[in-house]
Design a protein around this nucleic acid. Structure first.
Length: 186
DNA sequence: TGCCGGATCCTG
DNA sequence: AGGATCCGGCAA
């Protein structure tokens, strides 16, 4: 029985595309005071490092990107369009500037509200910039292996909203579960 | 110091 | 199709 094990640091300290694919089917857990929320990850995007022109880290190390350049297994949370928050998990060795954006969740337990989209899932789970830099091996926000053997078909497609990124815009670095109804767009 | 645009979402 | 609404990054 290997159910519900918190993912170790070594899970995140790997090639970003591999981590992105492996995150599909895992459970994101958010503990906010008395609330405990759990959702199955069904859609992600890989931002593979400083050379990836779609990645925030392509601007270099700045106050904003500091967490993304930090050690793996931490949350990188940023504000987008002045309204919404987006949750990423930092991957690879410190200094690489790589992360995976969590784009959609299938509700499992304790979740009220829409989780079909990166801004929506943050709202539903009460995730904002106070969690930027949070250690994913802590107790407020973490990811578990639910012991599921993933049978779903995985689709690779271009990332959403990165038309500015030149040759990187078309790279198939967005991954989602083909048959899942919680994917934000297909 | 000011300006521009964004890894989004909702409404009309 | 356009607005909301804040902040990071860059030019000046």
């Amino acid at each position: 029985m290997t159910a519900n094990l918190k993912l170790p640091r070594s899970f995140y300290d790997r090639d970003t595309e591999t981590v992105a694919r492996d995150l599909l089917g895992k459970h994101l857990v958010r503990v906010d005071g008395a609330r405990r929320m759990r959702g199955r990850i069904v859609e992600v995007e890989a931002y593979v490092g400083a050379h990836d022109l779609a990645a925030h880290s392509s601007k270099g190390v700045t106050p904003r990107t500091r967490v993304m350049y930090g050690p793996p297994g931490h949350a990188y949370v940023y504000l987008i369009y002045g309204i919404h928050h987006c949750l990423n998990v930092v991957t690879e060795a410190e200094g690489n500037g790589a992360a995976v954006l969590i784009r959609a969740l299938e509700p499992v337990t304790g979740i009220g509200g829409n989780t079909r989209g990166p801004g929506l899932l943050c709202r539903a789970l009460g995730i904002d910039r106070r969690l930027n830099g949070e250690d994913l091996l802590g107790n407020e926000l973490f990811i578990e292996d639910a012991g599921e053997e993933l049978r779903d078909r995985v689709v690779a497609a271009p990332r959403v909203g990165v038309a500015y990124a030149g040759d990187w815009a078309g790279m198939p670095l967005r991954f989602y579960l083909q048959e899942n109804g919680w994917v934000s767009r297909k």
